[in-house]
Simulated scan of single mutants.
Amino acid sequence: MTKENQRAIVVGASRGIGLGLARELLNQHWSVIATIRDTSQVPADLNQLLSEHPDKLELAELDLSHEQTANSIISKYPEHSIDLLLVSAGISGPEHQRVEHCTPNEISNLFWVNSIAPVTIARKFLPLMKVNSVIAFMSSRMGSIALNDDGSMELYRASKAALNSITRGFAQNEAIPAQIGVLNLHPGWVQTEMGGSHAPVTVKESTTGIVRVIEGFLGKTEQQFIDFQGNEMAW
Rank of each mutant, 00 (worst) to 15 (best):
G169M: 12
A162W: 04
Y77K: 08
L155C: 04
V119M: 08
V113M: 09
H80V: 09
D149N: 15
Q28G: 01
M142K: 07
L128Q: 12
R123A: 10
L49G: 00
I33P: 04
T192A: 07
I214F: 08
T207R: 04
V42M: 06
M233V: 14
V182K: 05
S81L: 11
I17E: 01
S88Q: 06
A70F: 09
F170D: 00
R98W: 06
E232S: 15
S152V: 08
A175D: 06
S159F: 01
H198T: 15
S51Q: 15
S31K: 14
R157I: 01
S108Q: 15
A175G: 08
I214C: 10
I91K: 05
E95F: 12
Y77G: 05
E52P: 06
W189H: 12
T167D: 02
P200N: 07
N114P: 09
A158G: 13
Q191Y: 04
N47I: 08
I226H: 03
R15H: 09
S197R: 14
L155T: 03
K124T: 05
R157S: 03
S115C: 11
G195V: 05
P118V: 02
S14M: 00
I74R: 07
V211E: 00
H101G: 13
I9M: 08
E205V: 06
A162Y: 06
A234H: 13
I210C: 11
M1Y: 12
T207S: 03
T103H: 10
E193N: 14
I121A: 10
V201N: 10
L110V: 07
A199N: 09
I33V: 14
I33E: 01
D38G: 05
P78F: 03
P118F: 01
T202R: 09
K160P: 01
V113N: 02
S165P: 07
A199S: 11
N148K: 01
A122F: 01
E193D: 15
R7C: 13
A13K: 09
V10E: 02
H186G: 00
